[in-house]
Simulated scan of single mutants.
Amino acid sequence: MTSSADSAMLGDFLAFTLAGDAPAVRDGICADGAVRWRWLGDGVLVLEPAEADASNALDAPDARRASVLVSAGVHGDETAPIELLSFIVRDIAAGALRLACRLCIVLGNPPAMRAGDRYLDDDLNRLFSGRHAQFADSREAPRAAQLEAVADGFFDDAFGARWHVDMHTAIRASVFEQFALLPHTGTPPARAMFEWLGDARIAAVLLHTAKGNTYSHYTAEHCGTLACTLELGKVRPFGQNDLTRFAGADRAVRHLVAGEPRGAGAGVDADADVDAPGGHPPMPRVFTVIDQITKRSDALALHVAADVANFTPFVRGTLLAEDGDYRYIVRHDEERIVFPNPKVKPGLRAGLLVVDTTRETLGALV
């Protein structure tokens, strides 16, 4: 059984991780014997149903149990989803939240979390898919390699559906307060993901059109997951988040963990904005990346307000950026800018340009 010290870890996984502690033993039983847990290292915890049956409502009735990786804190100052994950661990351990899948919880960058910073040396969410090998002196590089290995090992043992939900908060305000990014896989997006995002009350989805170096890109490409990055609000210090603002995403993650069918319990939510067939919330709006502004030098001039919101629209002919002989001018009737940040290091993305592709994307879901 679980010791009192390990119960403290499961009861407040965030506080345990911030303290830099290690459990007295690395595995045990919780939830009155219903759940097995394994501590794999700083901020990494695997929880599995203790019983042997492998049924799961997320798959066909005869399919194997789903494997779900939920991560937060890849940027150490994005605290709200870290707090949500800690509460999910607490509720599973206490038996208050049913566990119907293999679940891997990852708090991505504990040293940055402890420092209250986005990262220590380099953006961890740009170091996956082997890019960490280019940053031998970075304190984030070993963590990227470790988290790749965690995902590989976890999904190597997967037989059913594979999911990865990587939760973040944005630096700036957004026209759509909560939105998702889907990695480029070369195949049409999955209807299951879009329906889940609708249940999570995600207002908009951004589709990447090229491979990247984020955690969700890594698991989608190398582990075969249905993966998404969620942006759930603005960066705030620990303890200063209004977690009720993220109730939709929290509820959807809990339904995923519990193996509950789509929209379970959502139809009677007074704030659900349910108007789709079957009583489910509407699908998110969809935007597709058509270009990006890459910072070539410290001379980059980004011609947008310092506090411009994500998804702010600009009309054809607008000059958005200059960097030496490089100029970015809006080519479509309307383009929206996402993640504008002229302060990144040279060579990194200083902004994404997207266009609305809702109708054609939703029509092509598989």
Rank of each mutant, 00 (worst) to 15 (best):
D6I: 04
D6M: 13
S7M: 13
S7G: 12
M9Q: 07
G11C: 05
D12S: 13
F13N: 05
A15N: 13
F16N: 01
T17S: 11
G20P: 09
G28L: 10
D32R: 14
V35Q: 05
V46M: 03
L47R: 02
P49C: 07
A52Y: 06
A54I: 08
L69W: 00
A72S: 13
G76D: 01
E78I: 04
A80K: 09
I82L: 10
S86H: 11
V89L: 08
D91A: 07
I92D: 02
A93S: 15
G95D: 02
R102Q: 00
L103P: 02
L107G: 08
G108D: 09
P110Y: 12
Y119R: 13
N125H: 12
R126V: 11
F128I: 14
Q134G: 12
F135T: 05
D137A: 11
S138M: 07
R139M: 14
R139W: 02
E140P: 09
A149E: 12
D156V: 02
A158I: 05
A158F: 01
F159S: 13
R162D: 03
R162I: 08
T169N: 05
I171C: 09
S174A: 15
V175S: 00
F176S: 03
E177C: 06
E177A: 13
F179K: 02
A180T: 03
L181Y: 04
P183R: 06
G186D: 04
A192H: 11
M193D: 00
L197E: 00
G198Q: 04
R201D: 06
R201Y: 09
I202G: 03
I202C: 03
A203I: 11
A203T: 15
A204Y: 03
L206R: 14
H208P: 00
T209Y: 03
A210R: 14
K211W: 00
G212K: 14
H217L: 01
A220P: 09
C223R: 09
R236I: 03
D242K: 15
L243V: 13
F246Q: 13
A247C: 04
A249G: 10
A249L: 06
A252R: 07
A252W: 06
L256V: 00
G265C: 10
G265S: 11
G267S: 14
A270M: 12
G279K: 15
D291S: 15
Q292N: 09
S297M: 06
A299W: 02
L300Y: 10
L302F: 06
A309E: 11
T312R: 06
T312W: 01
P313K: 06
R316T: 12
R316E: 07
L320N: 07
A321H: 00
A321F: 05
E322T: 12
D323T: 15
G324T: 04
Y328G: 03
I329Q: 03
I329W: 00
R331G: 08
R336F: 03
V338N: 01
V344T: 11
G347N: 09
R349K: 11
G351Y: 04
T357Q: 07
T357S: 11
A364M: 00
L365C: 10
V366E: 04
V366I: 08
